[in-house]
Amino acid sequence: MKIMCLNGWGGKLYKELLPYLRDTSPDILCLQEVVHSPASDKDWLTYRDGDHVLPQRANFFLDVHHALPDHVAVFCPAAQGVLWDGDQPIPSQWGLATFVHRSLPVIGQVQGFVHKDYSPAGYGEHPRSRVAHGVRVYDYAGERSISVTHMHGLRDLNGKMDTPERSEQARRLLAQSCHVSEAGDLRVICGDFNVEPGSETLRILNDAGFSELVTGRGFVSTRNSHYTKPGKFADYMLIDREEAVRAFDVVRDPEVSDHCPLLLDL
């Protein structure tokens, strides 16, 4: 079974990303930074937050869903704010999504907030609302149940340091993983956590029995040439039984976002 985790960067590199997803076709795709604008039929809209201006695929969720037609798709919004078509504001939802190949029965799900609550009238002040989603599937090839839970961690304008909000976020993420899992399940937790390798977030998950695979397997970054700021770690994948890992990679080629895909083979 292949599990992929990726921050999709709002679909900015969708021309590279969609063929990569079709070719790789992970059994479970955990995708963060997903845009869904059902009121618009535009291909592109613009996100504006002060000096931060970024093109966004207006319906990135549907782009990926069409690229993976054999997958069941779930979109989990954290907020509805405004993207721009020139000078025209367009209501747009922002969050994360999970795609599960239809050959895997989904036998449990959990969706909930790890910071604040749904923001219905704007993206809100930083640090903004954050949602997590977990699925429990039955893996017939391995004759086992597997739970996979992911989130997009808080972006703090001051950096990736430990904060009480990030620690509470980690505890809520862990609680959601526990909620969607049953005794004996193989458990995976992943996402763009927006923290450094020595963070309290990872210590909380490690103390709960999870092994972190990115730094644990010697990878020195989860970012690529599209990311030019300091701090080359953001994304992590953890598992509670490392002996179940057949292979794990931080994929540097092709570049399909400013984040590298994390690819776990069980």
Results as ranks from 00 to 15, higher is better:
1 M>Y: 08
3 I>W: 00
3 I>R: 00
7 N>A: 12
8 G>H: 00
8 G>R: 01
13 L>R: 15
17 L>Y: 05
23 D>F: 09
24 T>H: 05
25 S>K: 04
29 L>I: 03
30 C>H: 03
32 Q>A: 09
35 V>D: 12
36 H>T: 02
38 P>E: 01
39 A>Y: 04
40 S>Q: 13
41 D>I: 05
50 G>S: 05
50 G>D: 04
54 L>H: 15
61 F>M: 07
62 L>P: 03
68 L>S: 05
70 D>I: 03
70 D>W: 08
71 H>N: 08
72 V>Y: 03
74 V>Q: 03
75 F>H: 00
75 F>G: 06
76 C>I: 04
76 C>M: 01
78 A>E: 12
78 A>H: 02
81 G>T: 11
87 D>F: 07
88 Q>F: 05
88 Q>K: 13
89 P>W: 07
90 I>E: 10
92 S>E: 03
93 Q>V: 00
93 Q>T: 09
93 Q>E: 09
94 W>M: 12
98 T>V: 11
103 S>I: 09
104 L>P: 03
105 P>Y: 05
108 G>A: 11
108 G>M: 03
108 G>P: 08
109 Q>L: 05
109 Q>S: 10
112 G>D: 10
114 V>S: 07
115 H>I: 12
119 S>T: 13
120 P>C: 10
120 P>F: 05
120 P>L: 05
122 G>T: 07
123 Y>K: 14
125 E>C: 12
125 E>N: 13
128 R>Q: 15
130 R>E: 04
131 V>T: 06
133 H>A: 08
133 H>E: 06
138 Y>I: 01
138 Y>H: 14
141 A>S: 13
141 A>T: 14
143 E>F: 09
148 V>L: 10
150 H>Y: 03
150 H>F: 02
150 H>K: 02
154 L>R: 08
156 D>Y: 11
157 L>H: 02
157 L>G: 04
158 N>S: 14
162 D>P: 07
164 P>S: 13
167 S>C: 09
168 E>P: 01
168 E>I: 08
171 R>I: 00
172 R>M: 12
174 L>V: 05
176 Q>D: 10
184 G>M: 07
187 R>T: 03
190 C>F: 01
191 G>L: 04
191 G>R: 01
192 D>K: 13
194 N>L: 04
195 V>Y: 08
196 E>V: 10
202 L>F: 09
203 R>E: 14
205 L>C: 10
206 N>S: 13
207 D>K: 02
217 R>N: 06
219 F>Q: 14
221 S>P: 12
222 T>E: 13
227 Y>F: 15
227 Y>G: 11
228 T>I: 14
230 P>M: 09
230 P>T: 04
231 G>S: 12
232 K>G: 07
233 F>T: 02
233 F>L: 08
234 A>Y: 14
238 L>Q: 00
244 A>E: 12
248 F>T: 13
251 V>R: 04
252 R>D: 15
253 D>C: 09
257 S>N: 08
258 D>V: 06
259 H>Y: 13
260 C>P: 08
266 L>K: 01
